[in-house]
C-alpha cells in the first residue's frame, strides 16, 4: 500500500488484476451460496455442474441465485468500466455514467412506462434503454455544437443540464401521481432482486459490445488525457475517439440502468478506487475498474440479503453504505490522491 502508484510497473499491475479476478471469483461463490438458505460451496458446485433435480439446492442455485449473480457480474463490469470512461472523457472526478443523461433519461422513460401500465420490472427495460439512448444522443449533439466534437467541459455541462431538465419532468409527473411514485421509488433505488434470467440475456449483447469498445478506446483516452491538441499531434482522431467512448458508455450504463435501476455510486466511486491501485493508464484502469465494480456489486447484494434477513435491503443502499466509508478511508490514507 505504501508503494507510490506513479512508479507502479507492469508486474504490480498484473498482480492487481489477478487479485481482482480472484476477489470477483470469491464474490461469485458467496453470491451463489449465501441467502435465506445458506449452502456449502460443495452443494453450490454440485448444483451448477451436476444438478440433482430433487435437491432443493438445485432449484435455489439454478433458478434464483445464478441468474441474479450473472446479472450482478454484468452490471458491475458495465458500470465500473463506464465510470472509468466517463471520468476520462470529461477529465472530471465528479462525473458518473449518469452524467450523459443516462440515468435521468432512463428514469423519465420508466415513469412514462409505469403510467402507461407496464406493471412488471422487466417491462420497463426497453423504456429505460430507449430513454437512456435518447438523452445521451441529445447531450452529445448539444455538447458537440458547431465545433465538430465535444470538449470535456461542454460534455459535462450539457449532460448536467439535460439531466436536471429530465429529472424535473420526471418529478412533475410523479408529484401528481402517488401510484406511479409508489412503483418508481423501488425502481430508482437500484436492485438486483426480482430480475429473472431473461433480463441478463437481454442486456448481455449490449454490455459485451460496450466492454469491447471500452478496451478499444483505452489507448486513445490516454492520449486525450494530455489535451486534445497533443492527442491530435500524436495522431489520434479526436472526434472518432470521443464517439467510440460515448457509444461504449451509453451501451454499458444504459443496459445496466435498464436492468437494475440507476446505481450511480458504482460508476462514480469505483474508478477512483481502482485508480489508486493502477495509476492513470486507462488500459489497466478500465479492466480493473470493471472487475472492482462487479466484485463490489455482488458483495453488496449478498450483504443486503443477510442484514435484514429474511427480507432484503436494496443493493444500491447497501453499496453506498459500505462502499462510501471505504472510499473515504482510501482518500484519506493516500498522501497524494491520483488525479485525473
Amino acid at each position: 500500500m505504501a508503494v507510490d502508484v506513479r512508479l507502479a510497473g507492469p508486474s504490480r499491475r498484473v498482480w492487481v488484476l489477478v487479485t481482482l479476478l480472484a476477489a470477483a471469483a470469491v464474490a461469485v461463490v458467496l453470491s451463489l451460496a449465501i441467502g435465506a438458505q445458506w449452502l456449502t460451496p460443495a452443494a453450490v458446485w454440485q448444483a451448477v455442474t451436476d444438478p440433482d433435480p430433487t435437491a432443493p439446492a438445485t432449484a435455489i442455485v439454478r433458478e434464483l441465485r445464478l441468474p441474479r449473480t450473472v446479472l450482478g457480474v454484468l452490471v458491475g463490469l458495465a458500470l465500473g468500466a463506464a465510470g472509468a470512461l466517463i471520468q476520462g472523457h470529461t477529465r472530471n472526478p465528479l462525473a458518473d455514467p449518469g452524467l450523459l443523461g443516462i440515468s435521468a433519461g432512463a428514469s423519465f422513460a420508466v415513469v412514462i412506462g409505469i403510467q402507461w401500465g407496464a406493471a412488471q420490472l422487466t417491462g420497463y427495460i426497453w423504456f429505460a434503454f430507449a430513454g437512456a439512448l435518447a438523452a445521451s444522443v441529445a447531450v452529445f449533439g448539444i455538447a458537440s455544437g458547431r465545433r465538430g466534437g465535444p470538449t470535456p467541459v461542454t460534455l459535462a455541462l450539457a449532460g448536467m443540464a439535460i439531466s436536471a431538465l429530465l429529472a424535473s419532468f420526471t418529478q412533475s409527473l410523479l408529484l401528481s401521481d402517488d401510484a406511479s411514485l409508489n412503483v418508481f421509488r423501488f425502481w430508482v433505488v437500484g436492485s438486483l432482486s426480482g430480475r429473472d434470467a431473461d433480463v441478463a440475456v437481454q442486456v448481455l449483447p449490449f454490455i459485451l459490445l460496450g466492454l469491447l469498445l471500452a478496451f478499444v478506446n483505452a489507448p486513445a483516452l490516454n492520449a486525450l488525457g494530455l489535451g486534445e491538441d497533443v492527442a491530435r499531434a500524436l495522431g489520434q482522431r479526436v472526434t472518432a475517439a470521443r464517439v467510440v467512448g460515448v457509444t461504449a458508455i451509453v451501451l454499458l450504463a444504459g443496459a445496466a440502468t435498464a436492468a437494475c435501476g440507476p446505481i450511480g455510486f458504482l460508476g462514480l466511486i469505483v474508478p477512483h478506487v481502482a485508480r489508486t491501485f493502477t495509476g492513470p493508464d486507462h488500459r489497466w484502469l478500465i479492466p480493473c475498474s470493471a472487475l472492482a465494480g462487479a466484485t463490489l456489486l455482488l458483495l453488496a447484494d449478498v450483504l443486503g440479503r443477510v442484514v435484514v434477513s429474511p427480507g432484503e435491503l436494496q443493493t444500491g443502499i447497501v453499496l453506498a453504505a459500505i462502499g462510501a466509508p471505504f472510499f473515504i478511508a482510501l482518500v484519506r490514507r493516500r498522501q497524494g490522491v491520483v488525479k485525473l
Binding site: L268, I269, H272, I317, A320, A324, F327
Partner: peptide, 16 residues
C-alpha cells in the same frame, strides 16, 4: 481535490 472526493463519498452515504 480531496475535499471534493470526500464530499461525494459522504453525499453517497446520505443519498442512500
Amino acid at each position: 481535490f480531496r475535499l471534493v472526493l470526500v464530499g461525494i463519498g459522504v453525499g453517497e452515504i446520505l443519498t442512500a
